[in-house]
Structures are given as structure tokens and as C-alpha cells.
Amino acid sequence: MALVTSDNHGLRLAARYATLSLVALIFLFPLVFMVVSSLKPDQQLLADTSSIRAFLPVGDISLDNYVKAFERAPIGRFMANSVFVTVTTVLMSILLCSLAAFSFVFLDWTGRGALLSVIVATLIIPFETIAVPLLLLVSKLPWIGLEGLETGWLNTYRVQIIPWIADALTIFLFVQFFKDLPRELIEAARVEGASWLTIYRRIVMPLSGPVVATAAILKSLTMYNNQYLWPLIVVQDEAHRPVMVGLGYFFQLQIAWGEVMAYLTLISVPVIAFYLVLQRAFISSIASTGVKG
């Protein structure tokens, strides 16, 4: 009897892993294609795309494309810029958006519903449609820096960070998550005289591991991967350019596909690393959310 069950169990386990792996294949193949291609000379890379060889590191394999990619563009600089802009924006975004969401869910104040609707409505506005008005706006905005008052935000890091801090998706993400937190906890703390800031810091945020991790991952992706049009129009000097604008360096008349793949592989590393780190936060937070309910 016991034997059969264990066999069954083993089979079911195998089936589970088989399903997981099959699905993994579907999601993995472009990445494999990208990494493998980055090791091949252009001619072979293109010839291989039509067969299974596209996914195999076979033939003339080398790191030449990486060497050439570094010669073509200041990749280190672009990545440092992108990482800096992304990390700063994500941190500020988590702070300001969770504060706002906290207020929308737990506090009761005049204008709350209307304001939340307005915020959700901004989700609809594709960035492409406001790029030009926004450009005109930031080119005239004042700023107080080390050298006193200046006008215009072009060619800075702040122009790549500040407009992106608050976004409806992150606020919305926190709102939906906070709605599931037990209100009794908050009200009990209120009865005991805790300030709103204390409740936010000591009760709500410690319970919000999963949503903070989720928001950070999603926000960092938008910041790192999709920042193309905006930096293109507000940043003219090379020193401030992010990775997606840097991609343009590789699209000459004859595209050096091997170098493109090498560049893509390189710039994907920080995001994947970031995801792996946050994944831990994701897991460890399961225990804490178990408190509720």
C-alpha cells in the first residue's frame, strides 16, 4: 500500500515538474536565443535563426561581440545612469504612492473618492500623448540647486526621475492591497492613540512586503526598460543617457546583430539581479501576511 502511494506521489511530482519545465521552455526561448546569439558572429547568427541552432551555442563561439559593444558605446555609463535613475525613482515612488494609498484606504476625508477616480483615470493616458506638452513644461521649470536658482530641467537626472515618481498603477496596487488588510488593527491602534504616521510605519508597511516587492519590480521594469522617448527628448548630452537610448548606438544602417544581442544581455543583468533579490522579500513576506485573517 505504502509503496503504491509513494510511487503515485513520485509520478505526480514528475508530472508537476514536467508541466513547469514545458511552460518554462515557452518563456525562456527568446532569452536563450539572445544570450546564445550574443556569442556568435553576425553571419552565423542570422543563418542559425531558421533552425534549432538558434538556441545552441555551437559553431564559432566567442566574446568578440561584447568587446566590440564596449568599444561602440559607453555601456558602463549608460547602465550606471539607468540604475541610478531607476533605483531613486522606485524608492521615492514606493514611499509617496504607499502614503497616498494609505490615505485613500484608511483615512476618511473630503474629496477622497473624487481624487482617487482622477488618479485612476490617469492610468489611461499613454505617455506618448503628453510627451510634447511635458517637454515644454520641464524646459521652463525652476530648480534650486547648488548654484542657486536655475531654470529648465533638460540634461539632468532629475528630469528623468521626478516626473515618474508618482504613478497611478503603483498607487492603485497599494490601494488594492491595503483593502485586504484588517481594518481592526488600524482602528485598535487609533484607540490606543497612535498617530497616523506611526500606524503607517509600524503596522501597515511591515505587513506590505508582497506589495512593496511587486510594486518595486514592476516600477523598476518600466523605468529601466521603457525609458526611451522621454530621455530622448529631454537629455541631449551623452553623460546622462540611459540604456534604452544607448540601444540606438547599435542600430546603424547595417545592424550588428551580435553586438545588439551582447548589449541586450548586458543590460538585462541588473534587472534580473534586482528581481532575484526582491524575490526573497516576496517569499519571506508570506509569513507576515499570515498574521491577518
Partner: peptide, 12 residues
């Protein structure tokens, strides 16, 4: 060209 047009709009 996009960079130039944007800069022209922004007076830069």
C-alpha cells in the same frame, strides 16, 4: 531628428 525637434521646441 526627434532629438533636434524636441530641443528646438524647448529652445535648446
Amino acid at each position: 531628428n526627434d532629438s533636434v525637434v524636441a530641443s528646438a521646441l524647448a529652445g535648446n
